[in-house]
Amino acid sequence: MSVDVIKTDVVIIGAGPVGLFAVFELGLLDVKCHVIDILDRPGGQCAELYPEKPIYDIPALPVVTGQQLTDQLMEQIEPFGAEYHFNEQVDTIERIEDGFRVGTDTGMQFECKVVVIAAGGGSFTPKRPPLPGIEAYEGTSVFYSVRKMEAFKDKDVLIVGGGDSALDWTLNLQPVAKSLTLLHRRSEFRAAPASVQKMLELVDGGDISFKLGQVTTLHGDNAQLTGVTVKGADGSTFEHPTEVMLPFFGLTMKLGPVANWGLNLDENLIPVDTEKFETSEKGIFAIGDINTYPGKLKLILSGFHEAALMAQAAHRIVYPDKKLIFQYTTSSSSLQKKLGVK
């Protein structure tokens, strides 16, 4: 596979509200951005954890939901033409002669002058059921996502959970797998009703089986699962033989690869100065919930402020010979032109 390196001014890691607003502040200063996020859409925690929940402390917005805030930020930053790369996790940041090389888990490569880490509480990763010994089976018999359906061809597959991921993969893997069982703790599902309906039809047709219960023990050897013990809804236990298990219990936040980037860390947070919000590495900035400094408050509004000050410092790195003149969007014709004001 040939790798085309994407060249840009700034790579922003994290498409939460603070990462998105950084696009705005950098854009006003003619700094071009690419934004990378592990989720499949913008918004970060606002989109993943509380899309429908009202937020009451955004200045001038008495009440706004996480999704509305995300949508409005996307509209506000649209003029700056940032490019977004979703479902990508930044794995590596290396210093190169004229900045940094940033690499993702799927092999994408970026070259940039400045890196902005706006990673919030870290990256969202699938929850690992706390079953003894599960680590030994991960990647061989236990999977938290499906990268290639072929890997499940002619296998006995057990899918655990009752949400959209569990239902979607039940429907998608059924034609591929040798046998498929869906295990869930109750007979109600929080998944899309249409998917539930299709799943029930497959059960009725004998194409898959559905069992009520929760996995308590894994059995197998040499990283190869042979079966699981299940506690049924009535408290009794039964054995279920299987080669593969796909548990879908939602996402949790883990610091992830941030720890490997050679930055000073303080209890999983990145210390920064309060003038530029720069980390211990020159040219790498950290804004929003991921950073720490005396008096830090984990508020969206604090992250917005940090983005504005960071942008000034980033501008000096991207355009070392240009003098930056401070301007207001209310009166500056050049800023209004960038914003597309007619």
């Binding site: 706390p130 869930h184 109750r186 109600e188």
Partner: peptide, 11 residues
């Protein structure tokens, strides 16, 4: 809340 308990362990 019952829906969310689907994402808990040993319910």
């Amino acid at each position: 809340e019952e829906d969310m308990l689907d994402f808990a362990f040993d319910v």
